[in-house]
């Protein structure tokens, strides 16, 4: 399931087989190669980290200093983070964003599992066609559906509520279905056949056999959807624009500098606060992310 991790575990084994004393020259060659590799990686790391360092440094500057060409905060203004809370109702925006992200994620998970199950573990005429249709919707630009959807939500009086961002998630998400299907296909048929012989229904097979085995994939789609909805900007921009109380973090942040006339330091502090949950989740669930991304694809 997890190619990257598996390979990494295998690597040390591979080395232990080739256990033999090395000549000093060979040892030196390897040391140099290792230094070269790490130098390269460290240089690349610096490039990836530098933007974050600048953001953090600026978020700790005084108003005045953030307008100058200085790079390092002097003094450190830890109060900036408190100021962000004073300028905008960050807690409310976080709560709105969390609601959308959590509920949508639940919706996608519960609605996509049965679909993926039917597309992978049940045989029926038209299955292949249905799967291709799911795949085809993956490349559908959201712009093609957005105007009528807007009109539908208007008719339902959903504009100005969080519903347009949550309810559609309960009707399956093509990407998640695709990913789960790919994973379900890797589970040996014998397992479900055994359950079937014991008289289990398809629903029971799915919930008791397949879902427990597919936990990594389910965790991955849950995380992807959480993150997607946490970061989404276009959806909230269109659908909940009328109601300031329902602003998400993306919306609030996009006009933070222009509407609230704030300095760069507070803008950067707010950006950091916005990224923080993502960073925390990433560290808690790095494995799931890596496995999930790997799963997206391509393996076939």
């Amino acid at each position: 399931m997890l190619t990257a991790e598996r390979q990494m575990i295998r690597l040390p084994d591979g080395r232990s087989i080739a256990h033999r004393p090395l000549s000093p020259a060979e040892r030196r060659r390897r040391l140099l190669a290792s230094i070269g590799t790490h130098a390269m990686l460290i240089a690349t790391s610096v490039m990836f980290l530098l933007p974050m360092v600048f953001v953090i440094a600026t978020s700790l500057m005084t108003d005045h200093q953030s307008l100058t060409r200085e790079l390092w905060p002097r003094p450190f203004e830890w109060g900036n983070f408190a100021k962000v809370f004073a300028r905008i109702d960050l807690l409310r925006f976080t709560w709105n964003t969390t609601q959308i992200a959590v509920l949508s994620t639940v919706g996608v998970v519960v609605s996509s599992i049965p679909v993926a199950y039917a597309l992978s573990r049940m045989r029926w005429r038209g299955r292949q066609a249905a799967f291709l249709l799911v795949l085809a919707t993956l490349m559908l630009p959201f712009q093609v559906t957005v105007v009528p959807l807007y009109v539908i939500f208007v008719r339902l009086h959903w504009i100005g509520s969080l519903k347009p961002l949550i309810v559609p998630s309960f009707f399956g998400d093509a990407f998640s279905i695709f990913l789960l299907r790919q994973f379900f296909l890797t589970i040996p048929d014998e397992l479900s056949d055994a359950a079937r012989v014991d008289g289990a229904s398809e629903w029971q097979i799915m919930t008791r056999v397949i879902v427990p085995l597919a936990k990594p994939a389910i965790a991955a789609i849950a995380l992807f959807n959480f993150l997607y909805n946490w970061n989404d900007f276009f959806g909230p921009l269109l659908y909940i624009g009328t109601n300031k109380h329902l602003y998400t973090l993306s919306l609030a942040l996009s006009e933070f500098r222009t509407v609230h006339h704030v300095e760069w330091n507070l803008t950067m502090a707010a950006s950091l606060l916005f990224m923080l949950p993502v960073i925390v989740i990433f560290f808690l669930a790095q494995r799931v992310f890596v496995e999930g991304v790997t799963l997206t694809g391509v393996k076939g």
Partner: peptide, 30 residues
């Protein structure tokens, strides 16, 4: 390439891709 430390580098390279686009855009503008 590296024999150890790969996970640390991988974390550093991977994490930016998860950051909220709005926050990233503002950060790069600054």
């Amino acid at each position: 390439k590296p024999k150890r430390g790969m996970k640390v580098y991988r974390t550093i390279f991977f994490m930016p891709s998860l950051a909220p686009p709005v926050a990233v855009a503002l950060a790069f503008l600054f």
